[in-house]
Amino acid sequence: MPQKNYSAAQRRQLIIEKLRDGDGAIHVEELSLGFGVSVATVRRDLDRLDRDGLITRTYGGAVLGNVRAEQSLREREVSHAAAKDAIARAAASLVEPGSTVFLDAGTTTGRLSYYLAQIPGLTVLTNGLNALNVFAESDTDVQAIALGGMLRRTNQAMTGSIAETVVRSVYADVAFLGTDCVDAARGISSRTLEQNNLKRLMSAQARRTVILRTLPSSTQTGGRIGRC
């Protein structure tokens, strides 16, 4: 994208074309560099396109078209259940008895809690209510610690300063994270800033980070890392 003095209307049209010609996602920094304008200007362009219903704003960028309203945890639990279970079993095989684990909120990570409950001597710190319920009902010696914080009802996750303070006080062997998308250069991204902050902090406080994600468009029983 050659740098020149585009009008706002021209920039917005080029953004749509770039989304259509690419993989359907774009980042603010990329557009700022390509157009030779400030990040704030690009954000205004994206906000206008979002209001017009042509794109959907995401954390740090945008995707083409309208994205369906976020599904509840219960809705997502029954979606691609076989793939999520396969991912969870594979993830559990990475955990040694006696380990300390960060377990992110989510459906695939929630499924992982069933397998973690079978591993002796674990300490699991989680912000997911579904995982906490699994540990509460299991007859094992897993020490489950709730991170606390503000409850986000849609995905039953606890986030915020309280959860972050607890995470900062621990160094874990492994962090299992769920995410809405993964970008090789920019890392993981979720729907809220609070969730992103907690995920990055979990990763920073763990010796190893494992991202668990299925692709909605996949028809196979396995999972993989997806792109934003």
Rank of each mutant, 00 (worst) to 15 (best):
A62P: 05
N197L: 14
R11T: 09
G121L: 11
L198G: 15
L46D: 07
V182M: 09
G24M: 01
K199I: 09
V37A: 11
S218G: 10
A9E: 15
G222D: 08
G121V: 00
M1N: 15
R227P: 01
I211Q: 00
V78M: 05
T56A: 07
A131N: 00
R48F: 10
R12W: 01
V42D: 06
A163M: 15
T221L: 12
P216I: 08
N127G: 14
G149A: 15
Q205P: 00
E70R: 11
V142L: 07
Y6E: 03
A136C: 08
D21S: 08
A172F: 13
T209A: 08
A105F: 14
G34C: 06
Q3P: 05
L46R: 04
R76Y: 06
V95A: 06
V167R: 01
D21C: 02
I55D: 04
N130I: 11
E194G: 03
V78F: 08
Y171E: 13
L122R: 02
G148R: 03
L31P: 13
R186C: 03
V78Q: 09
I162T: 14
E137D: 07
R89W: 05
K84T: 13
Y114R: 07
Q10T: 01
G187H: 02
V39C: 08
Y114F: 15
A131W: 02
A117K: 02
M1C: 06
E17Y: 12
S32V: 03
N133E: 13
I211L: 15
L125Y: 10
A25D: 04
A69V: 14
R168G: 05
R191G: 09
A131D: 03
V124T: 04
G61M: 01
A136R: 07
M1V: 15
A83W: 04
Q13I: 08
G149F: 09
E75D: 13
F135K: 00
R20W: 02
E30F: 08
G34W: 13
V37F: 12
P120L: 06
T140G: 07
P2D: 14
R48Q: 11
I119K: 11
T179Y: 07
T165H: 09
R76A: 08
T108V: 12
V67N: 05
T108F: 01
D47F: 10
T154P: 12
V170E: 10
T100R: 00
V124D: 01
V134R: 01
V78L: 03
G98F: 05
G36S: 07
L201R: 03
G53W: 01
L73G: 00
R207D: 09
L19Y: 08
V28I: 14
R76L: 09
T108G: 15
N197G: 11
G22Q: 12
R168V: 06
L198P: 15
